[in-house]
């Protein structure tokens, strides 16, 4: 087959009017919609996650206001830190899902294909960095909290027992190390999750960037 045969093959293949399969899709009806069914389903799944995490966040804020403002409770700093971490985690979860929604809804359709690909890669990189940094802050703060609690032996943490056995120091060190390594583990999981998208994006960008 010659290189120029491809065009004739393409035109021959499209000469007959067999492509009327989209007659069911009415342009007038379509443009009144926000998204097609399949994409709407993906977006509504993310919106549902946002709703749940936002509800959790509001309940948390409500409880905090009730405790600190209405009841005027005073907690020690070691009690406040875990509460603050829980709040931080809820904020992170909500924000993370909102960012994901933005990725799903923001588009760069009017740009050239190459610009649009670069735009998408930039957005994905931003999400990954945001997720990584958030986990890094939350888990490192948790590790610091555990260390501070242990060193100052607050609540008799040094003698905490598990099935009547005193928790050994190596176990605690392992737990702290786990917290410190966790952001990289999550980064690895994210890489696995986005691997296909990144592969496609990087491959497309590489093809377009290759010099003639």
């Amino acid at each position: 087959m010659d290189k120029n045969d491809l065009k004739s093959l393409w035109h021959d293949a499209h000469n007959s009017n067999q492509e009327i399969i989209y007659d069911k899709v009415k342009i007038e009806k379509s443009i009144s919609m926000k998204h097609c069914k399949a994409i709407s389903k993906i977006i509504s799944d993310v919106k549902l996650k946002i709703l749940f995490s936002a509800i959790g966040l509001f309940i948390y804020i409500g409880l905090m206001l009730y405790a600190f403002v209405y009841l005027d409770l005073v907690f020690s700093i070691n009690s406040i830190i875990p509460l603050a971490l829980a709040g931080l985690f809820l904020i992170f979860i909500t924000t993370s899902e909102i960012v994901r929604l933005l990725v799903l809804t923001k588009t760069a359709d009017n740009m050239s294909v190459k610009e649009s690909l670069l735009f998408s890669r930039k957005r994905l990189n931003r999400i990954r960095t945001f997720d990584f940094l958030s986990y890094l802050v939350i888990l490192y703060l948790s590790a610091v909290l555990v260390i501070v609690n242990y060193l100052s032996d607050i609540g008799g943490v040094k003698n905490l027992s598990f099935r009547n056995e005193v928790i050994p120091l190596p176990f605690l060190l392992f737990f702290i190390l786990m917290l410190l390594f966790m952001p990289w583990f999550i980064k690895y999981l994210h890489n696995q999750r986005y691997r296909k998208i990144y592969f496609e994006l990087n491959n497309s960008v590489r093809i377009l960037n290759e010099e003639a």
Binding site: I39, R100, L104, D109, N110, M111, S112, V113, S116, L117
Partner: peptide, 23 residues
């Protein structure tokens, strides 16, 4: 030309979305 640009970007984006939320 404009139609091609938008349609191609959309098609590529849809495939990416499928990969982002695999089901």
């Amino acid at each position: 030309t404009w139609l091609y640009r938008v349609a191609l970007n959309t098609a590529i984006d849809i495939i990416r979305k499928q990969n982002l939320q695999p089901k």
